[in-house]
Amino acid sequence: MDEESMGVRDEIGFLTIHQRYADRFFPGTSVLHTRARYILFVPWLFEDLAGLTGPAAMRAMRERERELAGRLKDAGESQVIGGRVFPQPSSQPPSTVYWNALAVWGLLRRRLDGRTISRAQAHRLLKSAGTAMDDDGQPLVSFDPPFVPLPKRPANWRSGHISLQLTTEEATFLRERLGQLRSNGGHEASLLARLVRTETVAPDGMWATETREIAGPDKSALARAHQAAHLAGVGRAVYDALLERIVETDDKRETSTRHRDHLAAVVEDHGSLAVRLDVGALEADIGALPTKLRAVLTTTKDWVASKSQNPAPLFDVYAAAEARKGPRARLAVTPHGRARRLEWSSDEHGLAGPLHYRWEQVSMLLNDLAGAQ
C-alpha cells in the first residue's frame, strides 16, 4: 500500500518484480525514503526518550517527530517527512519509514532469533539501561542497547533550525555500514554497497554505463531488470488500453482513446528492449513468479514481438491476473467490475511507464553522502 500511495500502480502484479529486484540491488531502501540524515535522526530521537515505554513513549515520539518536521521546514528544507501536513503529525513518520532500513543497514541490533526489534521493544531496552544497578553503579543484568554506537549529535539537535545536510563524520559512519551490504543475504556486495564505495554522486541513471561498470556479479541481473522494467511498462499500458476499451465496448460509455494511443508510443519506445527478456533467467535472479504474472509476461512479450497493434487478444490473461484482487478487479465482466470501472476516469488516470526500482531514492542517498560537509 505504501508503494501504491507513491504512485506505483499494481493492478496485474508487476510490483512483485519491482520489489524483488529493488531489494536485491538496494537492500533496506523504500520508496518512502527521502534524505539520508533521517537514518540518524530516528535512533537519536529514540535515545532522547530513554526511560519512556508504552503509550507514553509513543506519544512523545509522535510529538518529537512532529516538532522535527517543523524545525526542518523553518530551516527551508524540502523533502521533509511530514512537512506537507505540518503542524499535524505525519501518518508515515520517519520512525516508521526508516525502521526496516535501520535493521538492514546494521544500525539496529537484531534479536537473538534474528528478527528485527520492534519500536516498542527498542523503547523498553533503552529504559532498562538505567535500572538495576549494583553498589558500584554497574548494571546487575548485562545491557545490550538496541542501536549500535552512533555519531555525535549536532550542537543544534535539541533546538533551533536543523538541516538535512550530513556532516563528514555522519557520512563516513553511514558509508561504513552501507558498504558492507550484501545482495539478498549472500556473500557478494550489493549494487548499493558498490555505489556507496565510489564516494561520488549518483550516476546519471540506473542503466548508465557507470552503473553497469561497477555492478560486478550483478551486471547480467541488472540488464534483465532493465528489460523487465520496460516489459512491465508495456504491460501497464496494455492494461490501461484494455480497460479503456471495455468501458467503451461493454459498458457503452464514451471515453477517450488516451491510453490506447499511449500504448502505441510505449511499444515504440520500450518494445525492442522488452522482447529481449528471458523470463526463466529473471526467475533465477529473483525467485519464481506467480503463475498468472508469468503468463502475463510471456504473452505480452510474444504480443510485442508479433508487432500487433491490437491488445484485445491479451484480455483473458490480464483479466485472470487481476482476478487476485477479487471484487476490486476492473477488467472483470461482472457487476463488481462494472462498478469499479465507473470509479475510473481515462483522462484522470496516469499514463503507464516502466518500473523504477527505487532509483530516485537511491540517487538521493548517494548524493547526500557525496555532499557531506
Score class of each variant (00 low, 15 high):
Leu365Thr: 04
Ala103Gly: 15
Val362Gly: 06
Ser363Asn: 08
Leu297Gly: 01
Gly83Cys: 04
Ala22Trp: 05
Glu77Leu: 03
Leu195Ala: 10
Trp359Asn: 04
Pro27Thr: 04
Arg119Leu: 01
Val196Ser: 02
Ser159Lys: 14
Glu176Lys: 09
Val31Cys: 03
Trp44Glu: 06
Ser306Asp: 12
Phe25His: 07
Thr168Ile: 13
Ala232Pro: 01
Asp251Gln: 07
Glu213Arg: 11
Thr249Cys: 07
Ser345Asp: 08
Leu195Lys: 00
Lys73Tyr: 05
Val362Tyr: 02
Asp2Pro: 08
Ala228Tyr: 02
Ile39Glu: 13
Ala103Ser: 13
Trp157His: 14
Ala36Phe: 04
Gly160Glu: 10
Thr299Gln: 14
Glu210Thr: 03
Arg197Pro: 01
Leu126Met: 02
Gln19Pro: 01
Ala75Ser: 14
Arg338Asp: 07
His18Leu: 11
Glu67Thr: 11
Ala120Cys: 06
Val296Lys: 03
Val104Cys: 08
Ala295Asp: 11
Ala320Asn: 14
Leu126Pro: 03
Ala295Met: 07
Ala225Tyr: 08
Phe46Asp: 03
Ala171Glu: 05
Thr257Gln: 11
Ala320Lys: 13
Ala232Val: 03
Pro93Cys: 05
Arg111Phe: 01
Thr298Asn: 09
Pro139Val: 00
Leu297Tyr: 07
Leu195Trp: 07
Leu125Arg: 15
Leu355Asn: 04
Val80Glu: 10
Ala320Tyr: 06
Glu199Pro: 01
Ser183His: 05
Thr198Cys: 02
Ser345Leu: 01
Ser220Glu: 14
Gln19Asp: 15
Gly350Val: 12
Ser308Phe: 00
Phe14Val: 05
Val238Cys: 11
Leu108Lys: 05
Ala36Arg: 06
Ser30Met: 06
Val42Gln: 09
Met6Arg: 14
Ala284Gln: 12
Leu107Gln: 04
Thr16Pro: 03
Asn310Ile: 12
Met206Ile: 15
Ser363Gln: 13
Met206Pro: 08
Ala50Pro: 13
Glu248Asn: 13
Trp157Pro: 09
Tyr98Met: 01
Thr116Lys: 12
Leu331Thr: 05
Ser363Arg: 13
Thr29Pro: 05
Ala241Phe: 00
Pro43Val: 00
Pro354Trp: 03
Ala208Gln: 05
Leu125Ser: 11
Glu4Gly: 11
Glu63Gln: 14
Glu268Thr: 15
Arg110Asn: 09
Leu191Pro: 07
Pro94Tyr: 03
Thr334Asp: 13
Glu77Ala: 06
Arg115Thr: 15
His270Leu: 15
Arg175Cys: 14
Val148Leu: 10
Ala171Phe: 02
Thr334Trp: 10
